[in-house]
Design a protein around this nucleic acid. Sequence first.
DNA 1: CTATTTCGGATATATTATATCCGCAATTAT
DNA 2: ATAATTGCGGATATAATATATCCGAAATAG
Lengths: 164, 164
Amino acid sequence: MKHSEGLEWAIHSCSLLAALPPGTCLPSKLLAEFFDLPEAYLAKQMQKLSQAGIVETRRGPRGGYGLARPSADITLLQMVEAIDGDAQHFRCTEIRRCGPTGVANRHYTRPCGIARSLWKAEAAWREELNKVNLADINRMGQAETPPEQIAKALKWFQEKLAGA
Amino acid sequence: MKHSEGLEWAIHSCSLLAALPPGTCLPSKLLAEFFDLPEAYLAKQMQKLSQAGIVETRRGPRGGYGLARPSADITLLQMVEAIDGDAQHFRCTEIRRCGPTGVANRHYTRPCGIARSLWKAEAAWREELNKVNLADINRMGQAETPPEQIAKALKWFQEKLAGA
DNA sequence: CTATTTCGGATATATTATATCCGCAATTAT
DNA sequence: ATAATTGCGGATATAATATATCCGAAATAG
Ligand code: SF4
Ligand code: SF4
């Protein structure tokens, strides 16, 4: 019952792409360097985002990853599900039907209250995640990131992208 | 991002204890037989419930597990946290501070919008789980369990507990 | 066309979850 | 007292998953 480590990386990468000029492409090498993360494994996370249709890829020189649509159209839920999967957290194995007191399958018509309650809580969680999109996250980030860092980062990218 | 398998077992066991006459004690051997589950591993789950103070234990002959308080005072959240732990699902590793553009720690005052949004969704999930208690679950179960199975189960327990 | 860049699937390793086993302590029935 | 029952905790074995890396194929710039 926990998120994979790559989730933080993926969301940060999306957030960064959303903060840069629209259409910007960043290769995994640059992303990894910027966040000081293992490049090959970060690329795996980006691959998942790509498969989910959240980012587009451009191969070859000056290629990389870019957002596939406006940041306001990318929800937190979409990113979470791209990285951690969209399977239900609770998987019922129907143990009530087993054991010496189980009866024929046709007598069980719908999921029990246990499963329904757990799934309802999951739904509340997903609903909350779906209320937040990348644009929201960037608005918040803009407000809370130290100005020193914003300046430093802009300069760093200018040098890196120009030098290439 | 998923519940452990034992969660279903643990909740079913609690539900069963709540359905039987108050004060009933069931040993892990009987529970495992009733649900057709591996006894040793089910016992591990019951141990967690015991450590969390949800069930009480009685050692020795005619001992076993019994609810530690009325079923209306045991919430679904308490059982979930007893089995799957109460740690936050999202653990931020503060990658924004790393890399070539990080600045001194004192400039970061509070968790960012990413972490806050994910934690807020978790809170909604926990809140929903906290609305449901064992008594609710049993009410639902009573209504949806095939009457044939209820009769069968009662008879089974009568024989088992009398025969012992 | 060719050299370079970059993604993406296949592969390896580490960590965690699942499952079992056994000795010990506590309790009870006889 | 004694023997039988039962939970507890640690040690262990196995299966599943998460983490990390490698290398070939695809795409592009020149
Ligand atoms: S009673 Fe509910 S949780 Fe249990 S096996 Fe059936 S659907 Fe699953
Ligand atoms: S910016 Fe947010 S998610 Fe990223 S490291 Fe900081 S607190 Fe964690």
